[in-house]
Each structure stands twice: as C-alpha cells, then as structure tokens.
C-alpha cells in the first residue's frame, strides 16, 4: 500500500491535473510569500527549513512495519504542520514531492498538484486543527499523536475524493465508498502506526532537547519542569 501513497504519473485526466495545480498553487504561493517575509526578518530560518525538509524526505522513506505484515511509509506532514504551520509545510511538502518524483519515482509531475493538495495542504490542515484544539488540554505527546493520525488519515481521505472527482463512475456515491474502502479504511492502522512513531519521536526530543520545542513555541515550559529548573539554577559552573 505504501507505494501507491501518491497518485501516480498520468493517472489523472488533464483537466483535473490543471484544477489541482491551480488550487494548490494558490496556497503554495501564499506560503512562499510568508516564507519570504520570515527569511527577511530572520535569515537563519532558510538553512533550518531546508534541513527540516530533508528530514521530512528521510522520514517519508522510512519503512514502518504495520499490523498486517505489509510496510508503509509515514507522511510526516502532521509533525511539519505543528512545528512550522500549514503554509510553510505546504511549500516544504511541494519540494519533497518533487524530489520523491525525481529521485524515487514516487508520485509524478502531472499529478503533483493533486498530491500537494492532499499531502501538503489538507493533511497538515487537519493536523494543525487537531493540535490547536487539544493543545494545553492534555500532554503534548498525546496531542501530537492524534494530530499525526488525523493528518495521515485525512491525506488519504482527500486522495480518495480526488480520485472520485476524476473518475466518478456510474454512481459517484458507490465510487467514493470504493475508493474510501481502498485508501481510507486500509489506512486506519497505518495512520495509528504513524501516530505512535510521531509520539515516540516527540517524547524523545522532549527528553533530549526540549529547548528546540520551546524555541518553536510548541510546548509550554511547565511541560519540561526539570529542564527549566536546571536553567534557572545553572550558573554556568561559576561556583
């Protein structure tokens, strides 16, 4: 299932290729404008975002074993949305998808617009909304897990809807259930797997380098009491 993660080159008819290109293009251009503003204010974000994008690429090529015995790849779009916001994730996701098409032959150039819309826009949006709602109400590890599950799953729901719009069949309702059956239902365990992996990753970062998460403003200082108290008492070895 992991290999048909993205819509393959040539699968969509030309009018739908153009439609998704325009729709995603608007969001990505907005993201680029935000990015340019950020870079002007703090030039250090450019190399950081580049390496964050490279990390997203590696994360999406990790093989994740799932319950059914098959392997899947995490999307990483939920984590991106929580850390950098939806517009920036859309831009990074676009570059990652171009690299995936040209370095791994996953996805494609004509279907880039549709893939960006599902993986770079709708998925991160779902993750960001879940994160916004749950932030502060529970431990951030649980919130990020649910955000990652939502982002992964909504990515596939959007893909099924994109496919239904392109090939409505005799009865669009039965077609959408067919595609949802193929993508959305089989993806539920894989989405949970991605959620677990993201939660483990988040916990480890919180344990080892809470300063990164504090700097990005995604966790509260009260969540890492040991780190903040050590900062307050640490006099830099002057005693």
């Amino acid at each position: 299932m992991g290999d048909i993660l993205h819509i393959m080159e040539g699968f969509l008819p030309p009018e739908w290729c153009a439609f998704w290109y325009i729709l995603s293009g608007i969001v990505v251009i907005y993201g680029v404008m935000q990015l340019n503003k950020m870079i002007k204010e703090q030039p250090e974000v450019k190399p950081l975002l580049a390496i964050a994008g490279a990390f997203m690429f590696i994360l999406s090529s990790l093989k994740m074993p799932s319950v059914t015995g098959s392997c899947s790849h995490p999307c990483g779009n939920g984590l991106g949305a929580v850390l950098f916001g939806v517009p920036i994730t859309a831009v990074l996701g676009t570059i990652v998808l171009i690299f995936q098409a040209l370095l791994m032959a996953h996805g494609g150039i004509t279907t880039l617009g549709a893939n960006v819309f599902s993986m770079g826009i709708m998925g991160p949006l779902a993750g960001a909304i879940v994160w916004k709602i749950l932030k502060g109400k529970m431990k951030s590890t649980w919130a990020i897990m649910l955000a990652a599950i939502a982002a992964d799953w909504i990515t596939y729901v959007t893909t099924s809807i994109e496919l239904t719009l392109a090939f409505p069949g005799n009865n669009p309702m039965t077609t959408v259930t067919t595609f949802l059956g193929i993508y959305a239902i089989t993806q539920v365990p894989l989405a949970i797997a991605e959620g677990l992996l993201t939660a483990l990753l988040w916990d480890k970062i919180k344990e080892l380098r809470p300063d990164i998460l504090l700097k990005l403003g995604v966790i509260d200082e009260s969540e890492v009491p040991n780190y903040t108290s050590s900062l307050n008492t640490n006099t830099g070895g002057a005693e």
């Binding site: 990390f55 590696i58 483990l200």
Partner: peptide
C-alpha cells in the same frame, strides 16, 4: 522503539546541522 529513537536523533542532528549551516 528503535524507529522512534532513530527519528528523534535524526531530528536533533538535523536541527544542529541547520544551525551550524547558518
């Protein structure tokens, strides 16, 4: 567990590399 540790360590090294790259 291993994948989680790998991803977290990779994230931290990436972040450090990003700051060094600047």
């Amino acid at each position: 567990k291993s994948l989680g540790i790998l991803a977290a360590n990779l994230f931290i090294t990436s972040w450090d590399r990003g700051e060094r790259l600047f």
